[in-house]
Simulated assay, not measured.
Amino acid sequence: MDCKDEDIDTCDPNIPEEGPSAPPPGWLDNVTGYEEHKGGECTDQICPPPPDFVPQPESEKNAFVPNVILPTVSEDAARDALLQFVGKKWNYSSKPAKNLIFKDMKPFTVYRYRLETYTESRSSTWESEPHTGQSVDGPQNGAIPPPWHVQVSYPPNFTDVVQKVRVPHSSFVKPCFRCNGNGRVRCTHCRGKGMIHCMFCLASGHNRNRRCTNCHGRGRKRCVPCHGKGYKICVTCNGHRNLVHFIQVTVSWRNQVFEFIPDRVPEFPLKKFEKVSGETFFRDENPLVYPVDGFPDQDICEASKRTIRSHLLAFSSVSRILQQRQTIELVPLTHVFYAYNGKDYNYFVFGRENKVHTTNYPSSCSIL
């Protein structure tokens, strides 16, 4: 912009135009262990774990599961479960549940297999903050540790947590790239003039042969974004002129969960099992677990073998596997058959909570 324009009130030629919102290429140093950061790229760099952080399975081992006893539901418990279910449905009468006649109760063996793989992943990015006189932990204080050697506080296993840590000795101070170390940038709205043309009178000072009341006849108005100063405080350095650049490591702990239930009862929707718990009779927890072997339900054995292998392949290349846990639950499921007013009906009681699923309760209204 030419600051000799006759319209200019407060234009200062020393105030620079606003620069880029991110550091330009070459602005940041290359640091050993963080070489993938190119210039001003701000996206996170995924840091794969070093080989000695990657666990190795022992394929010849297997986990053995004990035998279990099939749980049963009494008639009283089945009736109470149905009454509780009906009590939550405003359009259902409790009369059929109170007066039904049980004909048969058929329990099913339902196993739920769950594999939890607890992983730690790390990514890094360059960050910055205004330099306000705070101490700067730079390379003069020691070598910059690689991403996986940055010390962090570990959370309890199998909990999802994200932690951001400033890498020790990675900080340095440079003039702000956005304002060129000035602390202020030229207002883009008024181009540094502090005044803008009045749009009501098209800068003429008159509107319909009368003095413009919006600009009081001057044809110009004070620029609102910069309050007539012609400049704004740099939003990157907040007016402090210098920035502290540093590498930040983001550590993410994630519990990767897989669940599997063999579909043995076509009439019962498997999705219902997501809302209930079962009786855990097998639990195996180690840095790496081994596939289940010798279990009566071969689908569970196959799911264990397949999922353990897929978790190892999927997560070990981009994260560190800290711990694995596999469990098998016996989820109660009983198909109840009963009669009411000479007609046959049925429902399912499932889970330790004795939840109910039915599609033909004696009612003129369908289930919600």
Rank of each mutant, 00 (worst) to 15 (best):
V289I: 11
E129I: 12
K229N: 15
R191F: 10
K4A: 12
T359K: 13
P296F: 06
F337S: 08
I196G: 03
W148C: 04
G228T: 09
K88I: 04
G40E: 12
T159Q: 13
T43P: 00
P71C: 10
P66V: 05
I328P: 01
K305Q: 07
T213A: 08
G19P: 09
R191H: 12
E259C: 04
E35F: 11
V161E: 13
S153T: 14
D80G: 08
H227N: 14
I46L: 14
V65P: 00
P139I: 09
V162L: 13
V265C: 15
R178D: 01
R254F: 10
S123N: 07
S93P: 02
D52R: 06
V292E: 01
P147K: 13
S364F: 12
Y340H: 09
S59E: 05
L202F: 13
R166D: 09
N214P: 00
V150D: 01
L313D: 03
T358H: 01
F64S: 07
Q256L: 09
D7H: 09
F282E: 10
C3N: 00
C223F: 04
D284M: 04
S317L: 14
L368W: 02
V162C: 10
Y154V: 15
N255M: 04
P23W: 05
F200Q: 15
T43I: 15
C234V: 06
H37Y: 07
S128W: 03
K221H: 05
R264H: 09
L100N: 03
I101S: 08
F281L: 05
G351I: 03
D344P: 12
E279H: 11
I300H: 01
P332C: 05
E129V: 12
Q140C: 03
F102A: 02
C11V: 07
P168H: 07
N354V: 00
T132I: 12
F337G: 02
W253H: 06
Y340V: 01
M199F: 09
R186V: 00
Q324W: 01
G19E: 08
V265M: 03
R186K: 15
K174D: 08
D7Q: 06
E274I: 03
K272W: 11
N360M: 05
P20W: 07
T359G: 04
Y92W: 13
P24G: 00
S317F: 02
V173Y: 08
V31K: 13
K221Y: 01
